[in-house]
Design a protein around this nucleic acid. Sequence first.
DNA 1: CTGTTAGCGCCTTCAT
DNA 2: ATGAAGGCGCTAACAG
Lengths: 345, 345
Amino acid sequence: MNKGKQPTIKEIAKRLKISTSTVSRALNDHPSIGLITTMRVKKLAEELNYEPNRTAIFFKQRKTFTIGVILPSLSEAFFSAAISEIENFANSRNYTVILGQSLDDPERELKIINTMKVHRVDGIILSSAKNTREFEYIEILRNAGIPVVFFDCVPDLVQINAIVSNLKTGMKEAIDTFASCGHRGIAFINGPAHLPASKEREEAFIDALVNNGIPLNRDYIVYTDLSEKGNTDATLQLINLSERPSAVVSFNDYVTLDAMNAVRSKGLTVNQDIFLISYANYPIWKYMENPPMASIEQLPGKQGALAAEMLFELIDRDTEENADDSGIKQGRKIVLESKLVNQHV
Amino acid sequence: MNKGKQPTIKEIAKRLKISTSTVSRALNDHPSIGLITTMRVKKLAEELNYEPNRTAIFFKQRKTFTIGVILPSLSEAFFSAAISEIENFANSRNYTVILGQSLDDPERELKIINTMKVHRVDGIILSSAKNTREFEYIEILRNAGIPVVFFDCVPDLVQINAIVSNLKTGMKEAIDTFASCGHRGIAFINGPAHLPASKEREEAFIDALVNNGIPLNRDYIVYTDLSEKGNTDATLQLINLSERPSAVVSFNDYVTLDAMNAVRSKGLTVNQDIFLISYANYPIWKYMENPPMASIEQLPGKQGALAAEMLFELIDRDTEENADDSGIKQGRKIVLESKLVNQHV
DNA sequence: CTGTTAGCGCCTTCAT
DNA sequence: ATGAAGGCGCTAACAG
């Protein structure tokens, strides 16, 4: 009937023969408004099916009650787990989440960030694209006054807020496990060398080997750009060595999937000729006949929740417009331990 | 430095000693503004790093240039493919996409719809939660003047816009394939009986059997609520029959995943004791040693693109506020064929 | 071609 | 306890 004609406080004011300010205050439970007036206003609002026009409020308050979440991929199990927790947290604060997927493309990532900036999101949670090397957008967002919290893929910079995973603990557990099963030929398929996450993994790998008294063989560390071909090539590189390793840690479960195909293509058998452990728990394993030995869990849900919590602290601080916007609010990092999870024994 | 103080057209107007309307028009390439003025305005805007305050524009124009997309799950391959195409389409129109996942929970779904309504999205693309039986939200959105396009999981109603998949073509191909391989014991694991998608599949299943001269065995049609347990139980029901079927079509690839585990748990071998075909192509198959025989592709990307196209037509029509908002714009449906895709032979 | 004016819906001083 | 008035940033009649 009344097509699209949403009632406004003006309408309510007119009908009740009072002023719009009174209506506004009544609706917001302002203490200075009489109980009877407040009730009358609320009753009519209910009847008319009144709903405040948020766009007007956003405009007025310079806030959108919206946060942006930018991830390389929405479909990876790791990220969907993080998304769920972020959404839960945001919803509890009556915030809406805008999602964006960079597909690991820096250009796309920048475009998404600009869109979010234009839409005036109140804050951003960001897992950077794997291929991003330039982080000008940090400056852009800082200028726009939009707080950012990184997680998972975090640029190697000091002045940023982030939830970071301690990749070393998990790696140590993985190598210890392999060693205690008698493996001596332990190899590592690492990700792109420029990633902080790769550097940290590699350090941990070497440390753990030393710790177990296993000499480091440089040929046992190979790299992939995380593409299917890269993963396959890296695996074949290991398989084709004269002294083929019997155990392999890889950058993540997706690398392992391709590695398993490569292993099979060479007539070898997983969990017999070669044992595998990788980062990030990928639930599809339970449907595989011959899954990897274990995964190193990185608690994406927890990381997401922590990132959201940190972001809202920053947003709240901004809102309270504390005069001291000096350096205090920059550069906090929370570290989470990674942990080995058995899949198969 | 100038922390947060975004320049406005007012600022530009003042500096250039012209009126704000001129600035506004110049910025929007209004033809009636002199070339020189336009240039001067644009130059200064550039220098000041001016960016229009969208929240003000949204407010003024009663539009948010935002569409909502609500799906049961963001991580299912089917939906992520659809999302990508929807995003592409929306971006080309300078629209932002707000994603929401219902997790097949009607309550969550309703909440998301309300959030989107409050945020005044200009339109919604919706794949309904599997468990939703009440569609009051259609009325709510209609009253709010927000156009909706359904796809994938479409309520069985006349007055809605939707992209629907013709599930029959794929089913026919699947049964034909089984039959031509000599299978006579062909069973079907269907989804919840209340879903239109289940009814259509079942009809097609029966038709296709008849067509191949295979008598229908009622025991060969079982149902699952799509939970892991439901899928497993349904599969075991078939396996435990005195005359175990040799071929099974199932509701979708996720059902098949659980079915495969059930098959193995009984000591049977996929692609030997039992052959499988299911709806929706799930890319992880390529990592399985023993994937199902085939999948029935439903072209999620194409469905998404078509849904977006249809939605924008509705949005544009609303904007042009054609007086004849009679029934014309209600109830259009576009049908897409489903198609068998060989996985393994 | 350009300026003036008004207003979108809401909130918020400042009066009363 | 309530009203009147002004303004957020931008657009769009309506004048010149």
